[in-house]
């Protein structure tokens, strides 16, 4: 019989496809971007080391701050509204009403729509005079809103469009709701809790892993918003939809400032990590609270 390999080596060998890909396609580029963030580099020519100049430049670059603010506003709005909305829809779907299967499919379907087609469709939906959204608003006596032309409205148009893609969250919440032990509800019913109290003090805590998962994932997803403003507004009007990734893309591929773009990208990584850690920390606190 052949010599037995130590188990950790066997394990590593099995996960090696992923491991090699991780090192090669993810870790290496991330490290490269760290290197280039300390250089001036234009794709067309060799890099020149510039030390911390790119990071210093950012502090005084008002567009950096604008894009950062827009991205954070978008993220918080989208995660808060989208989270509440998808939880609400999931609760509706769990009541086993007639038509549940159809509605679940309808809510999930948009997540499969490619972003290019969605951007085209929503751009049309948002047109001032012949778009569906303003037609809907008009019927309740609001508007018309120049959704993509008005700097005050454009970012909210992006938030509204982003809500269309929360089907994944809904589906995950539905699964989590299904797993809430019946016995808990029965206990709550004995305690005479109302529907809302029952939801807040029984349902929500017992599905907190799903809440955490959805919040983290949709935060990360929202921080990356890129294709929609790229295709719909090109960051305008008046930089109202200039989001972080779009500014990175412009610097890297349109202005020929790959070094500056890499520095921006690193700030983005740090923000994503920081927000994730905050979310994890909060969840730990909440879990302890529940245990106490």
């Amino acid at each position: 019989m052949r010599r037995r390999w130590p188990t950790w080596l066997v394990g590593l060998a099995w996960v090696s496809p992923w491991l090699v890909g991780f090192v090669w396609f993810l870790a290496a580029p991330v490290a490269m971007s760290l290197f280039y963030s300390f250089t001036d580099y234009s794709l067309l020519e060799k890099s020149v080391p510039v030390g911390l100049a790119n990071y210093r430049e950012m502090l005084g670059d008002s567009l950096f701050w604008v894009s950062l603010r827009n991205t954070l506003v978008y993220t918080f709005a989208s995660v808060a509204v989208g989270g509440a909305m998808s939880l609400g829809i999931a609760v509706l779907l769990e009541r086993r009403l007639p038509g549940t299967g159809f509605v679940r499919a309808a809510v999930f379907l948009p997540t499969l729509v490619p972003i290019v087609a969605a951007a085209i469709g929503w751009r049309y939906m948002f047109t001032t005079d012949n778009g569906l959204i303003n037609a809907g608003l008009k019927s309740v006596g609001v508007g018309p809103v120049d959704w993509l032309g008005d700097p005050r409205a454009a970012l909210w148009a992006m938030v509204l469009m982003g809500l269309w893609f929360y089907g994944t969250s809904v589906v995950i919440y539905t699964a989590a709701l299904r797993d809430v032990p019946r016995s808990l509800y029965e206990a709550a019913a004995i305690d005479g809790l109302g529907a809302w109290r029952r939801f807040v003090s029984v349902t929500l805590p017992s599905m907190s892993p799903a809440v955490l998962f959805n919040t983290v994932m949709s935060t990360i997803w929202s921080l990356q918003i890129f294709a929609a403003p790229l295709l719909m507004t090109r960051g305008g009007p008046d930089n109202a939809t200039m989001v972080f990734s779009l500014y990175v893309y412009r610097n890297a591929f349109e202005y020929g400032r790959m070094g500056y773009a890499s520095a921006l990208a690193w700030v983005q990584i740090l923000i994503a990590v920081a927000l994730t850690l905050v979310a994890l920390g909060l969840s730990r606190k909440l879990t302890y609270y529940r245990a106490a």
Partner: peptide
Amino acid sequence: RVPGRAFASS
């Protein structure tokens, strides 16, 4: 300012 912008963006 608002109608002028709306006119152009249409």
